[in-house]
Design a protein around this nucleic acid. Structure first.
Lengths: 131, 131
DNA sequence: ATTCTTAATGTTATAGCATTACAGTTTTTT
DNA sequence: AAAAAACTGTAATGCTATAACATTAAGAAT
């Protein structure tokens, strides 16, 4: 988890696209939106995403194969983060629960498992879509 | 979450492969192992996996795009399940933590989010690989 | 038993997601 | 200025998943 320098051109473009979209985007969708600025290949997107993830500015949603900008103004804190993903409108709520983190930490501690990264993704229907 | 009838030929083959492998397998890896029995197309695997997942006999590991047989002898109970995945040896520990479940239920309850399915996947290094 | 209905199968083609390999450029450090 | 490190560009390829359509098998009802 590196410390974050100034963004490069590609990184900045990718990040802006994700910030503007309120919804998760696949790498190829991002690509489509930056083609007009000269980016042509998927790898250019994936490389930028890797860096942005490393800095905690972007999260990968494993169950969607998609990416979303970090919801928190200050992207420095990296506690355990969880997502509630609406399967109807694709809205994503990001939250972090200290108690959930504590319990999982506890479990892996017991097993002497060295946790690196944790994905918690709840799929379902948000309140707005539930009617 | 259907009730489970007797397995069909394809379902049975796919399930056996997953039970024998102690480690998660991709759909295409499964396919390779059942080609000799006449299965030729990915879709045949995916269809069997869908059913097996519906019956709780197989879990999908979202962060690996892979599948694993349920670790519990009795595959009927479907509480919230979590996985600790070793990135070195690919060993997967399946566990379920009532307290984690309670906290997440709590959170989604507050938000009036209708949870359907929850993935909790901890990536890291297991004890055996940590030396 | 024959019909009706539903579920599962087989096959081809295609869509969507991600990485390897290699060459070149820019930026930072010394 | 030279060396090292980070980033970029491009093409090719590999892995994951589904759409569409035709067929077959299995179970239920009369």
């Amino acid at each position: 988890m590196n410390t974050q320098p100034r963004l490069t051109r590609n990184q900045d473009m990718v990040f802006r696209v994700l910030v503007d979209a309120k919804t998760p985007l696949s790498a190829y969708t991002i690509l489509d939106q930056v083609r007009e600025f000269g980016i042509r290949a998927p790898l250019q997107i994936y490389r930028a995403l890797d860096k942005l993830q490393g800095w905690g500015m972007v999260h990968r949603l494993e169950s969607l194969n998609a990416f979303i900008a970090c919801a928190r103004a200050d992207c420095q804190r990296h506690e355990m983060v969880a997502f509630a993903i609406c399967d109807k409108c694709r809205h994503v709520s990001e939250f972090s629960d200290a108690q959930v983190k504590a319990h999982l930490d506890n479990w892996v501690g017991d097993k002497e498992f060295l946790a690196n990264q944790t994905a918690i993704e709840i799929r379902g229907t948000c309140r707005a879509c539930a009617r």
